[in-house]
Design a protein around this nucleic acid. Structure first.
Lengths: 225, 225, 225, 225
DNA sequence: AATGAATGAGTATTCATTCAT
DNA sequence: GATGAATGAATACTCATTCAT
């Protein structure tokens, strides 16, 4: 759904509101006539996420994307200006969700260790729910360079600094040990999350919640020194 | 030097050994005639590592590699069968070094926490010394899939299992807490190392040794529970 | 106005006449709602002329035309069958005006040198007033080849032959020298006019009238031998 | 031949000297195996000139060029960086020849009317010999805009100014009348030449020399006032 | 040991146009 | 009268690789 919202930015103006509601259950001839579900935009983004995560951005051709999405190339370029634009949508959707969660957790004003645990668990859970997006993001993060991506870089930095500040406060208050610098610990935490798609398997025995707790245990124990 | 050894493996059949000992003397001429230092092979691999780490494997053209290496395309294909072959060399050189170090550390038979620390510090140090190789490795690891890369996959798994076994033994002996599973902890450790190229800057204030100790502190504290 | 008349000819069947007289009043609404002046058709043709003259026909996309005209693509295809159709309108409007002027001049029955001067001055003046149209015409004249353009080719030939006949008569009467053939002189005159858009600048110091006289002086001196 | 020389600029280094001479009569397997004559570069340029003059630069696809040249697309891009590069070569070859001729004529130091006649005749003759190149040049001259073309713009301006200066001197000396400005006359002369490809037919009854003299007669008569 | 010409399949993107609404 | 989604063929250009020399 967040995807739908964000794609509207590059689509010619038609938002989800214009589609989903009542009275228009058929969602257009095109969608109904295809095997795949969802709007044209959603199908394109889903196909792109899947392929980018499997093969990498450069190794994925636009041809492959439109074939998997069962859409013509022209249709794709009707909604997205370029292949890069598609990547932007993917990044944007992922970061937006996580930032919203972060703000909610910070607003709750819990004790530091609880806040850290909540953040780690949320990161692990949202990442587990969006393994492919995270894989793409981690692998192609150098593409955040252009002007287009400036807002996303800022979002990412805000998340990073929020976590680091929590660690700093904990070290000042004596709740956390200072053996490792707050910056290093923060980088470690994001490093762990970014690597998750490399090894976490959703069909494994551990639930995302369990894994999140396990990682939070480890991180908090490390912070306790 | 390790690079030199490994490239012989992939030379298209006309390896040094195949040419007979006599021709050896001429090898230096090409290198001396160019502005850059090192043998032709070394220059090619160095150029490839640099470009792969900056732009990714797919985004790097053979043309770019030979231009940076100041070598003709024909020359490159004289030494390497393909662009993939170049990637193999890079992986091989990195894994070989780290496995050799691992064996040395294990052979020393130190107490478990010391061994873990030694491994983490060594990984951080060798990674800091080969940031680009590690960046390539982490990013393009899915390319280990083919037959060609089977040996490398096995090496990597051996390293992984050695570390996990140390953790398991520590948990059995009660030296380490069991709150996080040995497998998860191991994956976390390699995750941290693989992410290092994303944020470690060699010109920063921390030496690799310091950083290695800091990370080892964190990991051991996490293991201590 | 000439444009307005001619476009009716190419409208896809739903011309004003076809719609019935009643609907006429609404025609102004669209124009008033936009920033640009003029009817939708006039805006489209003006945009096309400008772009074709700046970039050439092939280098101009329909998208660019409708953007400059502040019109949707669908609207454009409502009025014009194709991009070629637009070119036809431009040619048609230009040639019609000039042929009308020619007939007026010929009908006046002045002495030969005066008639030649009047024609040259008129050509220079109407060309200066429609520099862009002339630029398009001169550059894309090979597109007059198709069936569609047959009438325009005939018009052009009539103009050419009228001028040549004047020269022939002058040479027979001894008013003009015969050093250069009448055909060559005629081609030279049209060549000069067709090239005008390449160098005549409306904001320069010479008025079209002055320039026309200067060129007529030159041509008549050449004819005088 | 001039074409061959100029293309060497963008070819990888192999000049005509490396081909044409003795001992290599076969001119390479590729050339001998094809129906068309000449080196790969010459065939490509010839095909491009022909198509550009027939259809225009934009209307001509690279595919068409390589098909007519009986060359693969890759081969074309081996020798020319882009389609624009091809245009540059065509312009360059044409302008170079004409400038060389101009310098020879100016160096002869003949009386003004004779010099003007020599220039006009030479322009008409070289243009008649390179009708297609001139057609392309006249039609696509707006492409001289980019940085790449700066040298060509300068050459063209030099030619223009040389002719204008001759006219100015003639007017000062009283050899030529001043009814039309020197600048206008110069523009007229080049206008006539640029338009030549539109109507001159090499299979017609007039030889280039005859036509050149006829045009020179007309121009000199115009100048005499 | 090394060159550079040549290949041909593949790339992302743009195009004029159609059509249901 | 006008919209905008959708098409599919065409575009210029790049690629890793081969091969005769």
């Amino acid at each position: 759904m967040a995807v739908g919202r964000s794609t509207a930015r590059s689509a010619a103006g038609r938002t989800d509101a214009g589609r989903g509601g009542a009275g228009r259950g058929a969602a257009g001839r095109g969608a109904a006539g295809r095997g795949a579900a969802g709007s044209v935009q959603a199908r394109i983004v889903a196909a792109a996420v899947g392929l980018f995560s499997e093969q990498g951005f450069d190794a994925t051709s636009v041809q492959e994307i439109v074939e998997r999405a069962e859409v013509t190339k022209g249709a794709m370029y009707h909604y997205y200006r370029s292949k890069d634009d598609l990547l932007y949508e993917i990044y944007h959707a992922l970061i937006s969700t996580q930032l919203t969660d972060l703000d909610r957790i910070l607003a709750a004003g819990r004790p530091l260790p609880d806040a850290i645990r909540a953040i780690v668990v949320d990161l692990v859970e949202t990442t587990a729910a969006r393994l492919e997006e995270t894989a793409v993001f981690a692998r192609e993060s150098h593409r955040l360079a252009g002007d287009r991506m400036a807002a996303l870089r800022a979002d990412r930095r805000r998340y990073h600094e929020a976590v680091r500040d929590l660690v700093v406060r904990g070290q000042k208050d004596g709740v956390f040990a200072a053996s490792a610098s707050a910056e290093t610990v923060t980088l470690i935490v994001f490093g762990i999350v970014n690597q998750l798609p490399q090894w976490y398997r959703p069909d494994g025995e551990k639930s995302p919640r369990q894994l999140g707790d396990e990682i939070a245990d480890f991180v908090l124990a490390g912070l306790a020194g």
